[in-house]
Amino acid sequence: MVNKIFMILTFVGVPLSVIGTLLHWPSILLFVIYCLTIIALASFMGRATESLAIVTGPRIGGLLNATFGNAVELIISIFALKAGLIGVVLASLTGSVLGNLLLVAGLSFFIGGLKFKRQKFNVYDARHNSGLLMFAVFVAFVIPEVFSLEMNEAKTINLSIGISVILIALYLSALFFKLVTHRGVYQHGDSGAEEHHEEEPEWSKGKAIAILALATVAVAYVSEKLVHTFESVAHSFGWTELFIGVIIVAIVGNAAEHASAVIMAFKNKMDIAVEIAVGSTLQVAMFVAPVLMLVSLFFPTQMPLVFTMPELVAMVSSVLLMVILSNDGETNWFEGLTLLAAYVIMGIGFYLL
């Protein structure tokens, strides 16, 4: 039923996006159409990556979900950078961290916990990811903020370039560690869902890859149009750039991961659900953010990796909460509710800011 709704939204939304753009429909109407279309396209990306995840296993499957989920946000952010909306891009990065750690993980733990009393996942992966999360947010995001207080704009940009290169190198090293040199080393039955070889993928490998490619192209087109509606929509509703980035862009841009992680948790595939939520956060902090910073060098306005104090405090709090709740390798619905409560509190704060 849900898949049918998304299919209808896709086949109606994409043509409407093109027609509405050509006929210059009202910005608010176009904003709604673009958002719904991107979410519908993201659902196809989610289903395609789920099919690939069954073939490739939980770690690579989770990585694929995170990558193609973040591809949507990366595309939106590049067009926002081109338009000079630096505040929206930084806020959307903050929103991705909060959304993945609190909203996606929270919904996954909560929905899965309603069906299963206790859900387990690989504790070694959880501890490995915890260290990277602490590094990505505490070192890579807090350090530029502190040093920028004593630097001019040019030096802050140079500092951001250096940090970006190091982050990308470390992220690639982390992938090499998990997928090559230490693949399978830390799997000793800690997962609550070890074997799923009997499950058949919805689509074949070739069909799933083709759908991913087509959906990504469509998302790129709609995202470019979506960015141009931000200013008038913000003015109409009294929203700030910060709120649009933290809440709206982050939710729309990460819709594929949101759906996939919750579905996996409901099926008791917590390794994949946690890998989507935490792996996506790491990818945003250690790959998407530095890539966007380096891409901004080619545009008139450069984007330093310097966040506002509310953004930094929110991200640090999210990381600490997630690390504390996930380091035991198991979860339940109440832990999910705790994460969701934190997300709502921060959402209210950013709305009123």
Results as ranks from 00 to 15, higher is better:
T308Q: 03
I247S: 06
N158G: 03
G13N: 11
L179E: 05
F135Y: 15
A256L: 14
S160C: 02
V165A: 15
A265W: 08
P310W: 06
V139R: 13
A169W: 13
F176I: 15
I5E: 01
S280G: 15
K4Q: 10
A213D: 10
V217M: 12
A40Y: 09
G184F: 10
A255Q: 09
M346P: 03
L294R: 00
H258R: 14
A342P: 04
S318Q: 04
A66P: 02
Y343W: 13
F299I: 11
N70R: 07
I348N: 00
L226G: 10
T240F: 00
L226Q: 15
L172Y: 14
G113Y: 05
S232D: 03
V32D: 00
L325S: 00
Q119G: 12
I33K: 00
W25I: 05
M270G: 09
N268Q: 10
T331Y: 06
F307Y: 15
F79I: 03
F135D: 08
T67F: 05
L22Q: 13
S204A: 07
K155D: 14
P15S: 05
A314L: 13
L353S: 01
S296E: 01
A71L: 15
V262H: 12
L175S: 04
L74N: 10
F138G: 13
L337V: 08
V18D: 11
L85M: 09
L64T: 07
L352G: 01
V137Y: 14
N129D: 08
I86D: 02
Q302G: 05
M151G: 01
E231L: 09
A277H: 04
L103D: 09
L52Q: 10
S236F: 01
E311S: 09
V55P: 13
M303N: 10
M293R: 04
S236G: 05
N268Y: 11
L74H: 10
T301H: 03
E231Q: 13
G131H: 06
A80F: 05
I143S: 15
V249I: 09
S260M: 09
V104K: 03
N70F: 06
S17M: 02
G20W: 04
V14K: 12
L339D: 08
T67K: 02
V323Q: 00
Y351A: 01
E224P: 08
A105N: 03
A210L: 15
I263E: 04
A136F: 08
I345E: 03
K207R: 07
G347N: 02
L292A: 11
D125N: 12
P26H: 00
M309W: 01
N268E: 14
G112M: 05
V295A: 03
A341H: 09
V319N: 06
A169Y: 08
F243V: 02
S130A: 13
T56E: 14
L114W: 03
L81E: 00
D125I: 02
A314V: 07
T21K: 15
T338N: 04
Y124N: 09
L52C: 10
E241T: 09
G189H: 12
S236P: 03
G69Y: 05
S191T: 11
V142R: 10
A80Y: 06
S51E: 04
A261E: 06
M270D: 07
F298Q: 05
A53T: 07
A136N: 07
F6Q: 03
V219R: 14
Y34G: 03
F350H: 03
E199H: 13
A277I: 04
W239N: 06
